[in-house]
Design a protein around this nucleic acid. Structure first.
Length: 268
DNA sequence: CCCGGAACCTGAAGGC
DNA sequence: TGCCTTCAGGTTCCGG
């Protein structure tokens, strides 16, 4: 579910709540959520650690600890909640008891989400492409990331090694803003189109961030409220409804195994 | 390289 | 009411 704007919203809202706190206890309701190391070793590594910083890399939440790093990937339905006390929840997968008594809960209906403890996240993040909202990320960098790639734009935007953090919603939103068809080949773009794509990506992500993310169904902010960006989406989920630019009905098509929403007239 | 499809899971929603 | 199908914000693996 969550893409860059949703994960960034979580990071910004959790940061003032948990920075400097110690993790007193870890309870794994479903040990399968731990990707690495083993569940027992994960508990041993996490207990007693102090959270120094809360950061994001691509779609990963990144808790910098006094020893190593705790990473969380929410995949489709993962959530992180801060609760005043533990309460029964069939979808709770892991609880982190903080030194102020509050519970940082990892919840995940579909069980795709994963937790990681790593001594050093650098090798872990190495496969990821640049951060599209980094001020140092310029149109030339986008051109470099696309150079030599034979794929279609939609697939490349979803590829985390091309750029980190974009998912199905913001890929469609970025392509609509850029006026580019999802099945255009990257190799066919001229300089002006690359620039438009760069701008479309940034504006789509910044709009999502401004509204604290998109809640279609599962995504929630750490205190439980929804994002608001679903009210401002330009194409995603708008099949059959008029394009905001030209009035043509928006098309939904399955491309690369994912649903793609686009305007068949003004996206070329 | 690139693409499509399946797999990993558990619902919600819509058609009949 | 109940059964069946389809769809879902992500990622990875496998075969063509």
């Amino acid at each position: 579910m969550p893409e860059l704007p949703e994960v960034e919203t979580l990071v910004q809202e959790l940061r003032p709540q948990v920075t400097g706190r110690r993790i007193d206890d870890v309870i794994l309701h479903w040990p399968g959520c731990v990707a690495t190391p083993s569940p027992r070793a994960f508990i041993r590594r996490m207990k007693g650690r102090i959270i120094r910083e809360v950061r994001r890399r691509g779609k990963f939440l990144w808790f910098v600890l006094d020893h190593g790093a705790w990473l969380v990937h929410l995949k489709m339905t993962g959530r992180l909640f801060l609760l005043p006390m533990s309460e029964p929840d069939p979808h709770a997968r892991a609880d982190f008891v903080m030194d102020d008594g509050r519970i940082l809960r990892f919840q995940d209906l579909r069980k795709f989400g994963r937790l990681y403890w790593v001594p050093d996240p650098e090798p872990f993040f190495r496969p990821l492409g640049p951060e599209p909202l980094d001020p140092r990320f310029r149109p030339e960098d986008l051109a470099r990331q696309l150079a030599g790639r034979r794929g279609r734009l939609k697939a490349l935007l979803l590829n985390q090694s091309v750029m980190a953090g974009i998912g199905n919603i913001y890929a469609d939103e970025a392509l609509w803003r850029a006026g580019l068809h999802p099945m255009r080949s990257a190799a066919s773009l001229n300089g002006e189109e690359i620039r438009r794509l760069w701008k479309g990506i940034r504006e789509a992500l910044l709009a999502g961030l401004r509204h604290h993310g998109t809640t279609i169904q599962w995504y929630r902010r750490p205190e439980g409220s929804s994002g608001a960006h679903q009210r401002y989406l330009r194409v995603y989920g708008r099949a059959g409804r008029p394009c905001f630019r030209c009035g043509t009905p928006i098309v939904r098509q399955v491309l690369q195994g994912r649903s793609a929403y686009f305007c068949p007239v003004c996206q070329r």
